[in-house]
Design a protein around this nucleic acid. Structure first.
Lengths: 145, 145
DNA sequence: TCTGTTAATTTGTATGTACAAACAAATAAC
DNA sequence: GTTATTTGTTTGTACATACAAATTAACAGA
């Protein structure tokens, strides 16, 4: 296989990027005891104070079942709790969860620094921006079909 | 969480893209009975005719253990076989594997068409190119540390 | 020839994520 | 007021992928 087949393929290339950047992110977050995705979920809950799984799924662009799994873990670790209110289920931060906010922000800054050190500020910004545009285009039309 | 936190994050954005594009790719490949990654592995083996797991890992930018798992599956389905030669282990296509080549190429073309239809040719090319550059930068420096 | 070292591969296990089915609660239809 | 429908959530299960440990085979040094 001439390797152009791979490098010209958006599927292959973006999965490869995702593996590499996830590994970097995990290293940054490790010392704070979070996985990067859990951290973003915590940020979302801390900001809203009270949010349903479905809303979290929309914010994080994941399926509700995935959200359930993450919330389970974070409840287990004492960062979140669930509250049932009639038909509604809400996810809220515990005290410990609110207190973790500063650490999470620090870890995110850390991760940014790590990849900006390798890419430079301009490249980091523009590739992120371009990926964001692309995924929006793909999702908008996907949902119409 | 203001959603800029998410959209400005290369980790989050590229994982999101990876989920979306993988889903599209799976749809294109489904009718041919392959998952997209298995298909690329088949392409690599068909081209080399005889290749070690380590080489496959390098070509596909995955770990050897992941390659073992994929080869197991494709052997199980009758597309590949393993050959032990003294200390070396080679992966080769079976007859069935060689015959699948045309289908795989067709599926890849299909997948390309699908995302180019949503992105346009220029955007598809340039985002792929830019991601490729980025991942190369990240990996080059990663390996030095 | 035995022993220690190195390199390649596989295995055990874990994580992230999704789909489809099951479940629960609220609401609508009669 | 019971039954059917819709909507949100969770559960069972499955797949892609990785890490660390175990295995295997060749090789080097004594």
């Amino acid at each position: 296989m001439n390797s152009d087949n791979l490098h010209n393929c958006l599927f292959f290339t973006s999965n490869r990027l995702s593996r590499v950047i996830t590994k970097m992110a995990e290293e940054s977050f490790q010392r704070y005891g979070f996985s990067p995705t859990h951290a973003y979920l915590m940020l979302a809950v801390n900001e809203k104070e009270k949010v349903t799984p479905t809303q979290l799924a929309q914010i994080l662009h994941m399926t509700p079942s995935t959200i359930t799994r993450f919330v389970d873990k974070l409840v287990g670790k004492g960062f979140l709790e669930r509250e049932v209110e009639g038909k509604n289920i809400f996810v809220l931060p515990t005290k410990k969860g609110r207190e973790a906010q500063a650490n999470i922000e620090e870890a995110i800054t850390d991760m940014y620094k790590n990849y900006v050190a390798l890419l430079g500020d301009a490249q980091a910004k523009s590739v992120t921006q371009m990926i964001h545009e692309t995924v929006e285009m793909l999702e908008k039309n996907e949902s119409e079909s």
